[in-house]
Design a binder for these strands. Structure first.
Lengths: 243, 243
DNA sequence: GAGTGGTCTAGACCACGAG
DNA sequence: TCGTGGTCTAGACCACTCA
């Protein structure tokens, strides 16, 4: 037997799909809807939570619930990109970058395969589409690959990125791990998403031919409007055959 | 100001992390916990919902709430695999496969780039770890690549899969799209997960050198215990190389 | 201040699992 | 049957936004 929450969610979904409530429009107040459907407010709010998780509506405290405009999806493009063909995840209209120097610790040291307390340069990137935050990226590079002199001259991530092709030994491999989790409270507030909305978390490691990790990056993308695509040429994997 | 729900979730999380409640153990009844924390049952249940979304506990209707044993994570390995190194997502201990013939429609026809109503073979794979469902895969292959004669002899997905290397033209590329969404009611019940637990949804297309899609696959993995890894060799993007 | 959503209460009743 | 979780009610009170 379908719960009232789902029945209501289905009905509202239909009202949105058929354009009876249009993108950008405000939904009737929760109290209104509750009396319309003859349910209590918590029940109605549960129905709205379903639609919110689906990315169909947006709740704005003090203003109302709005049908979300069809949002451009955020596409993370996996694999390697030359400096020209930047990764789409941070090729967004506008990107805010904070550059700081930190020390490797715990998980980060493991990812970069460096000793604890190694100096790192951190690029904290927040991309926007208009006023809305889009995606969050934390990119870590060992300090010798992002020397202070170069950073002064172009303190951006791209500035450091363009130096990679000149590396010796050259870049060899990109390894990406994709998982789903709930955002941390920080991430939820920075991305302006509900803390109940799962995010796509991508960890990227770039290694040179010597096996050294030259970059580790953590991407956090809102799960309701992000996807990641990976295109791999078909080659017989030797390691898989060995296992 | 932290909500009571989060305060309680934090406290319970701590009780689990420090081993005061051990993996596999049942939590006190919700009514018990509610009176212990002096909150109403819905508030306490919200706290448990947080832990459930984190994959820390498991709710079993009529029995109780249990601390989840540390589950083996499900790892989807992206890119191509030779028939030997089967993809980990369906190389699980036991796999149930249903083979049926269907007709391409809508999204599926688009994925496979075949006309609507083209005959397809569908492999519906459900992998288990012990009694627990693990992951769900729906794999579609045009019928001429999975002829009835071959299916009679080995009606498994692997049986068909091993034929791919003999293809003319040979396989060229694997394209995978990863996204996050809520499970459909069907998926939630088959995988025995809460309908509120986001899943990792992976769409895989395998194409031969002629651009023909020889296989489309839809994987659904529980978000709380799955990840996907992609390893890509570093090759210079042709567009950039031409310049 | 008026209207909105966010959180919480203190119950009720139903559905499931095990003895 | 009993104890469990699942769903729902009909409010209360607080926080936020905007005029």
């Amino acid at each position: 037997m379908p719960s009232r929450r789902d029945t209501i969610a289905d009905d509202l979904r239909d009202r949105i799909a058929t354009g009876r409530i249009k993108p950008g429009e405000r939904l009737p107040a929760e109290a209104h809807l509750a009396s319309e459907y003859r349910v209590s407010t918590p029940t109605l709010r549960n129905a709205l939570a379903v639609l919110q998780a689906e990315g169909l509506i947006e709740k704005v405290h003090g203003k109302g619930n709005f049908v979300r405009r069809p949002l451009r999806r955020i596409r993370y493009v996996g694999g390697c990109r030359t400096p020209d063909g930047q990764n789409a995840a941070h090729a967004a209209p506008s990107v805010t970058v904070h550059t700081t120097r930190i020390q490797a610790r715990g998980h980060l040291a493991t990812l970069l395969k460096v000793p604890t307390n190694s100096p790192l340069t951190e690029f904290l990137c927040l991309s926007h589409e208009g006023k809305r935050p889009h995606s969050l990226a934390r990119i870590y590079v060992p300090c010798d690959l992002a020397p202070a002199a170069a950073l002064r001259e172009s303190p951006s991530y791209e500035g450091t990125m363009t130096r990679f092709p000149e590396l010796h030994p050259p870049l060899a491999e990109v390894r990406e791990k994709v998982s789903v989790r709930l955002p941390t409270p920080d991430e939820a507030s920075v991305l302006r998403i509900s803390s109940a909305l799962a995010v796509l978390a991508i960890t990227r490691q770039m290694a040179d031919t010597g096996g050294r990790v030259v970059e580790a990056a953590l991407f956090v993308l809102p799960g309701d409007r992000a996807d990641a695509v990976f295109t791999t040429p078909y080659v017989i994997d030797e390691r898989a055959a060995e296992e």
